[in-house]
Amino acid sequence: MIQIQALNKWFGDHHVLHDVDLEVAQGEVLVVIGPSGSGKSTLCRCLNRLESASSGTIRIDGVPVPEEGRELARLRADVGMVFQSFNLFQHKTVLENVVLAPMKVRGVGRAEAERTARELLERVGIAEQAGKLPARLSGGQQQRAAIARALAMRPKVMLFDEPTSALDPEMVGEVLDVMAGLAADGMTMVVVTHEMGFARRAADRVVFMDGGRIVETGRPDTFFEAPRTDRARDFLAKVLTH
């Protein structure tokens, strides 16, 4: 579903991604972990070209990610993204947030878009919040609304960049539950997270990044029980004791 080959990214002369090669299969749930500044967000953002790659190729469903314009917009429509800071449209109600892209990008009629939106809001457990502005919702509800908004485009892939890092601890679970449900339904997912419990529970594969490189990758059980590299061992020792 996703093929990344020899991906490099520089910000000025700061080399943020080094020769990253990665494949994500259809229906696979890939969890990306690693210390802050290791390039996880940048990798995620390169996948839908919110950041442009400096070199290398990225293919989504066999198609190279277009450079710009309508082609790029079309690709992004098929790749859902969930941000750490939710980024719900502040001036629109939850329902309007969810129907905007299906109506403007896919040309779906309002009645159908609203029907789908209400189903999705039901699915993420916030149906009764449909008419409220985002600022009226808790962080956990906002993030679930953001997931519903992304799902409304019926994406082939979902990208999550630390979706629970901005949440109060008591709200983390409700968001992870929605994500685990998606994973169980067979969605292809790339999830950057520090929630090791989620990684163990829902991931098919874990990728550990450090210094802009993929240092280790493996099945969650083997990775967490017996990391092969020192850097992964150090990292796990730090996050698991905290």
Binding site: G80, S85, L100, R149
Partner: peptide, 26 residues
């Protein structure tokens, strides 16, 4: 905030659409 336009573009809105429906109204 930059995240508003990014979220709009990540959903597949073109630059013009994200400006018109998301950024400019705010």
């Amino acid at each position: 905030s930059a995240g508003q336009g990014e979220a709009a573009r990540a959903l597949g809105l073109t630059f013009g659409q994200s400006l018109r429906h998301v950024v400019l109204p705010q």
